[in-house]
Design a protein around this nucleic acid. Sequence first.
DNA 1: GCATAATTTTAACGCTGTAAAGATTAGATC
DNA 2: GATCTAATCTTTACAGCGTTAAAATTATGC
Lengths: 196, 196
Amino acid sequence: MATHDGSTRYHHGNLRPTLLSVAKALLEEGGPAALSMREIGRRAGVSAPAAYHYFNSLDAIAAALAEQGFAELSESIDAALAGPRRNLLAGGIAYVAFARANPGLYRLMFGEGFQAYSKGNEAIRALRMQVYRQMKDDLEKRLTPEEVPNAALFLWSLTHGLALLMIDGQVEPGADPDARVEDILKLAGMGLPAAR
Amino acid sequence: MATHDGSTRYHHGNLRPTLLSVAKALLEEGGPAALSMREIGRRAGVSAPAAYHYFNSLDAIAAALAEQGFAELSESIDAALAGPRRNLLAGGIAYVAFARANPGLYRLMFGEGFQAYSKGNEAIRALRMQVYRQMKDDLEKRLTPEEVPNAALFLWSLTHGLALLMIDGQVEPGADPDARVEDILKLAGMGLPAAR
DNA sequence: GCATAATTTTAACGCTGTAAAGATTAGATC
DNA sequence: GATCTAATCTTTACAGCGTTAAAATTATGC
């Protein structure tokens, strides 16, 4: 491997996190399809099979990235819900902001390959559930129990769809995309003051 | 190549459409990632390079499938809008129904690979625009001009998001998925009688 | 200092997309 | 009907991929 001073060592010393950060960079450069075991090794300054000491497969690397992503997304929503505007609108804005800041990762988390690499990954299932629960909990504060399931699916669909359309460049870029997101989400009636 | 009676001919005679239909089957079996030049050739009873006589690349096959998909989606929406319930709700239901009936194709049309194979494909851009316009036209009948852009993005986000969540198996399957779709879309206030 | 365990490399297999060159066949012209 | 031409398909080949197996190297504990 190559080190910062140009020298070379047999043992990397910090390979696992390096692999993940290199993979994340690759993911944001070219989307999930750009993830490649050999390219990850190349950028980490290591042969491709070296990565197999830390991950069983390319899918395992994808799963690790997705897991990180769900954790980060969940934290980001938590922070928004704890902020000055503690309501679902703030949560939705944070959700879309995460997707826009990490388009490759978001596509990995919700895109076509998901079923493949998350097969039997309980951590991912749990984290994904947690994001959904954050929204449901808030809805339960002001809706009847029968209304909650449909309202939750409605909001998730809207937010997820908006995030993807923006990521895909399907939304004509105006001056202030964040304001646009807020306007759209408000149409769902999310802007009500939160019940305490 | 192999024919129905077990014999073999050098010239297939109907290769281009066969390639497309075989590719469509592959797409629905394993999603966009399952599309493979060699497998397509194999199933068509032909060597892989034979396909290059009709398509420049695997992406070109994907683009042809996507183009077909957009045309079919557009027709399906048109039919719904011309039906007994000539309103946006009917259009939205038809939209989601298309996605659920062709999950692999829908992911191809709107998924991560889109940018790659549709690069410079004007037919696809036009057809995609057309679907969007169908919705906008209807909105313009009953909203002020300033309201239309946001309302259109709102509806497309909701419908697109719902379609993807259902395709991905994120919606707990109830007794009647179609009714569920209708309930969700109704929450957007789409169920108003259409202006004539 | 030495044995052991952890880490990484090289070599190899079967798969992929696709380019190049050659074989085969259909269709037009005589 | 024979022949020439153009269309169609096959074989061969190359580079790149994920992954496995075996060997090499280095760090660690005694």
